[in-house]
Design a protein around this nucleic acid. Structure first.
Lengths: 238, 238
DNA sequence: TTGACGCCGTACCGTACGGTACGGTACATG
DNA sequence: CATGTACCGTACCGTACGGTACGGCGTCAA
């Protein structure tokens, strides 16, 4: 399995970056988190102990550096896939809560905030792909990952909807609410693990109340549910 | 009523800007919509036919120009207040739909997208108030305007919740879903009036299903409601 | 008429940035 | 050892920007 490709000579992994390049991109990521995107290429070179010439040779121009950084982060967080579990009501609820908690912890992380801010800044000028990359690896990636579960829930008679995309968007709204826009605009409100767990449970409850199959639905009523909030996140997206 | 204050001599209105200043700020707003915030002060002066010296005299520095622009736009959209109507179920539903439709049309407008992008860009550096201003006049302004209606609905026995802030955040999520982040990141998907009206109706339905007083709640089921979507927006926020 | 004022247009200045070039070094290959 | 390669550090260049200064012009009041 391993060793199929000579590992010392060609140390590019599937994401297309060498080890040294990944080190540099991690430094860029740190700068983004610390200072937004107001840093110069010289600042990158100083912080990463590399030369500007190398940066331009590797990534073309400044926008190429930022693009590579976003892609590197995107390739790193693609791990973790929900297993095809047998689907009963409790498992479905647990999956929804897990997705919600994970999504909340991601969008409230400093890395996600920094990356989204940079991408939003560059979205105004049409010559940058940053916004598309972040969208593809954030909003749309999690959508494609959750929709199979929603559809499995529908097949199992647990959910009721006509369009999984619309159902997902409702779930997205119930989970995220105003969190992302407030964080992007600099409203520093903390989102600790307990809050995230409670929010995830509430969002799952409300989603099931709206899209659960049972006639009459379930009015949300605080808590009183089984399946305590899942532990650590299983998947990650930008 | 009019003429209480001499109109020719002191043409500052309550927002603190003179007529000429408002003209200039509208030009800045146009530049933001057209080009993000990558324009120079010289570009503003050329587009507005004024001198850079005047700009710096009026607004201090470049960030002051942007701040004044955001404040000017904020002061302009503060008009329109929902009247204290008698509250029955139909009127409540109509109010919710109106709010939702208005909010959707605002956040999908080019002006709002541009302003939010600039504010998000500057939110990384702590030395700019743009993010706070946009938050105060957007997310929080509409919250303070909707919560009295929610509480009136609760007093009338039409709604059931313990915290109006939490209820509002759920409404916010059900209405906005992924719209704002997608638009900010440059996903150009159109949101025409028909779609906005349908989305507003759906959001109001879902909110009432979750927070309506009736035992058992109302499962969302497409449309089939009274009170066709409100016509033009009544209020506006950033 | 005269002067003060506010503003426009433009020239100017210092700086910081994106991008390139060059010398020096470590290392790998033959 | 000779040669090539990849990289670091730094110097360099052109430009564009933020911010300031100055001359000129219209307006208004005394």
């Amino acid at each position: 399995m391993a060793g199929m490709i000579s590992e010392a000579l060609q140390d590019e992994t599937e994401n297309g970056f060498t080890e040294r390049q990944r080190e540099v991109l991690d430094v860029v990521l740190g700068l983004m988190v610390a200072e937004g995107d107001g840093f110069s290429v010289a600042r990158i070179a100083r912080a990463a102990s590399c030369s500007k010439e190398t940066l331009y040779k590797w990534f073309g121009d400044r926008d190429g550096i930022l693009t590579a950084t976003v892609q590197w982060q995107a390739s790193r967080v693609r791990a973790g896939e929900y297993d095809r579990q047998r689907l009963d009501a409790a498992q479905l609820r647990k999956s929804l809560e897990g997705f919600a908690a994970n999504w909340l912890s991601v969008i409230s992380s400093q890395t996600s905030i920094a990356l989204n801010r940079v991408a939003v800044s560059h979205a105004a000028t049409a010559k940058s792909r940053l916004g598309q990359i972040v969208l593809a690896n954030g909003r749309f990636a999690i959508g494609e990952r959750l929709k199979p579960i929603l559809e499995a829930g529908r097949n199992a008679g647990l959910l009721e909807f006509v369009d999984s995309e619309e159902a997902f968007r409702a779930f997205f709204g119930l989970v995220g609410r105003d969190v992302q826009i407030r964080l992007l605009l600099g409203d520093d409100f903390s989102l600790d693990q307990a809050t995230i767990a409670a929010d995830a449970k509430r969002a799952a409850n409300q989603f099931l109340a709206l899209y659960g199959y049972r006639q009459g639905g379930v009015k949300n009523s605080g808590g009183a549910g089984d399946a305590p909030a899942a532990g650590e996140p299983k998947i990650s997206v930008i």
